[in-house]
Design a binder for these strands. Sequence first.
DNA 1: ACTGAAAGACACAGACT
DNA 2: AGTCTGTGTCTTTCAGT
Lengths: 154, 154
Amino acid sequence: MYVFKLDDKDLSILRLLQQDAKITVREIAARLHLTTTPVHERIRRMEEQGVIKQYVALVDHTKVNKGLIVFCHVSLKEHTKQAGGLFLDTINGFAQITECYNISGSFDFMLKIVVADMEEYHQFYVDQLGETPGISHMQSSFVMGIMKYTMQLV
Amino acid sequence: MYVFKLDDKDLSILRLLQQDAKITVREIAARLHLTTTPVHERIRRMEEQGVIKQYVALVDHTKVNKGLIVFCHVSLKEHTKQAGGLFLDTINGFAQITECYNISGSFDFMLKIVVADMEEYHQFYVDQLGETPGISHMQSSFVMGIMKYTMQLV
DNA sequence: ACTGAAAGACACAGACT
DNA sequence: AGTCTGTGTCTTTCAGT
């Protein structure tokens, strides 16, 4: 593991890019009282080091017929590498599962699942998720409202 | 509520932008066997309709000294509008809380909390979150691994 | 590490089919 | 709804401080 030395200017650039990936290098430079070259070089370095992982467009789930978000806690029967690996391979094949975390507590994993509606979730739950080998028990929490959602880590 | 008619071309554009917001309009056009103008126009429309909410840079939390992610389930004492509003106002002021969902089940809210380490989480838990008015009980789940994470909804 | 200038690529708008 | 063409702006590189 490598230590990344991010100074105040790097952090300022990150803050701006986390809010709006389309901001121009010129604009960032202007706000930091710099020219484009150092800003460009700092961004390039952070991309290369993996500090900036990806640039993405965030889509409104309600406007692409994905109105229902469900958090599903999952416990496995066995906790061997093999059982876990098999579970994760299956998970990765499901486009409805957008996030999967290995968590502490009485469950092993927490999944974020994005579907059109309750009917689609039921289908998915019974036919796909429920058929996944190795699952001991599951518990679904339905999202009734998103009160805060930001990608801003720094 | 308005119905958004997204055709296959719109969805193809969305798929590309969700993977890489920096892709050029020219590149998208080439892949869809179109010229830049219709692609540009479709993107503009989806931005205006709010289908595309935002363009953001995704930052690696481990590389900006935010190594610990915690999901915290929260129950409130009262379920009045006022108590909820007060809670959410407080939540919004905490930069460590990046996501907050109103959920079904035995808890009222689920929070995603991003901090440097367990020490910072403990401080935050005791001094900030624990002092938030109206909370009945809380339960923290620590993230031990991120097995899947994508912004790809369509 | 930064500035300033300059080339090439790009977004974006207009006239047209 | 799309193509083609042009203009201004942007990214990106390079010589210089």
